[in-house]
Amino acid sequence: MTPRRFYRIRQILDQRQPDLTVLADGIHKSQNISAILRTCDAVGINELHWIVPPGEKSGIWKRSAGGSARWVKPQRHPDSAIAVAHLQARGMVLYAAHLSPTAVDYREVDYTRPCAVVLGAEKEGVSTAVRAACSAEITIPMYGMVESFNVSVAAALILAEVRQQRERAGLYDTGSRLPKDLYERTLFEWCHPKMARFCRERNLDYPPMDADGDIAEPSAWYAQVRAERLEEKT
């Protein structure tokens, strides 16, 4: 871990927007969800919420994601009711990107409040059940024969507007807005992904880091872990 990389990681974490997310509703193509994940990282979104019914095969296409799955956590939900309840419990309003007679220009809603942008599959759009929970339906004006952009392109356009509104409101300049425990856990996982996986697999607390982002006294930490394990066996 170089000081330059540690500074960069902390800088990115300080700009994460814990009250902003995307909810993917019925998006099955790995290329699309992966491209959306990449855009989420670019605008400072920490989690992408994804409705994936049990038994449905959906994954991240690494080529499109560009490694963003390491920086943005995909949170899967088995159905729309659970996903919506989870976001509303966090105080978020939902904006559905959906073409309808009541839809407003995507630039006319307030993205500086805690919110989730809901994106649906290109043919069906956002499901009726999810739309019923949304505060507004938004649309991107079109000037050609096609009715809509590809969903990943639409996500990029909408999230670019989200970022501009939040930049004007100073929400990227306030220092870390993540809860302290989440910040520290994420910082360690980003700095030391292999060690983090080692700890999770063995149900161990993460070791402390020093001011430069390195693991503080790793030999002493390993010795303590071994001693605790031996004590458990006796």
Results as ranks from 00 to 15, higher is better:
residue 169 A to Q: 04
residue 183 Y to M: 13
residue 185 R to D: 08
residue 172 Y to H: 03
residue 159 L to N: 02
residue 117 V to L: 13
residue 214 D to I: 15
residue 130 V to H: 00
residue 129 A to C: 01
residue 118 V to I: 10
residue 125 G to V: 05
residue 114 P to L: 13
residue 118 V to D: 05
residue 213 G to A: 08
residue 142 M to V: 05
residue 119 L to D: 06
residue 134 C to M: 00
residue 211 A to E: 13
residue 93 V to W: 04
residue 104 V to E: 02
residue 193 P to V: 08
residue 183 Y to P: 10
residue 123 K to L: 04
residue 172 Y to V: 01
residue 102 T to E: 14
residue 174 T to F: 05
residue 103 A to R: 13
residue 197 R to A: 15
residue 108 E to P: 10
residue 111 Y to S: 03
residue 167 E to Y: 04
residue 142 M to K: 03
residue 136 A to C: 04
residue 180 K to E: 06
residue 148 S to Y: 12
residue 170 G to H: 03
residue 100 S to N: 10
residue 96 A to D: 00
residue 211 A to M: 13
residue 146 V to H: 05
residue 99 L to D: 06
residue 195 M to F: 09
residue 157 L to E: 00
residue 180 K to Y: 08
residue 169 A to F: 10
residue 140 I to Q: 01
residue 94 L to D: 02
residue 212 D to Y: 14
residue 211 A to W: 14
residue 153 V to E: 00
residue 190 W to S: 05
residue 201 E to G: 09
residue 215 I to K: 07
residue 157 L to Q: 07
residue 203 N to V: 07
residue 108 E to H: 15
residue 168 R to V: 13
residue 196 A to C: 10
residue 162 V to S: 07
residue 118 V to N: 06
residue 139 T to V: 11
residue 157 L to V: 15
residue 114 P to W: 15
residue 128 T to Q: 06
residue 153 V to S: 07
residue 110 D to A: 13
residue 211 A to K: 14
residue 102 T to N: 13
residue 179 P to F: 03
residue 159 L to V: 13
residue 151 V to Q: 06
residue 213 G to E: 10
residue 102 T to P: 04
residue 208 P to K: 10
residue 114 P to I: 12
residue 176 S to M: 03
residue 134 C to K: 00
residue 123 K to N: 04
residue 111 Y to P: 00
residue 153 V to L: 12
residue 163 R to H: 10
residue 190 W to C: 03
residue 191 C to K: 09
residue 111 Y to N: 02
residue 144 G to I: 11
residue 100 S to I: 12
residue 146 V to N: 04
residue 186 T to L: 14
residue 137 E to H: 08
residue 184 E to W: 01
residue 160 A to E: 06
residue 135 S to G: 08
residue 97 A to F: 12
residue 204 L to F: 13
residue 201 E to I: 09
residue 149 F to T: 14
residue 164 Q to F: 11
residue 110 D to L: 09
residue 173 D to F: 05
residue 144 G to Y: 13
residue 118 V to L: 03
residue 97 A to I: 11
residue 125 G to W: 09
residue 133 A to N: 01
residue 119 L to S: 07
residue 130 V to Q: 00
residue 215 I to L: 12
residue 177 R to G: 01
residue 120 G to K: 07
residue 127 S to V: 04
residue 170 G to Y: 00
residue 127 S to A: 05
residue 175 G to M: 07
residue 94 L to H: 01
residue 136 A to I: 04
residue 158 I to A: 06
residue 124 E to F: 05
residue 215 I to Y: 09
residue 140 I to T: 02
residue 125 G to T: 03
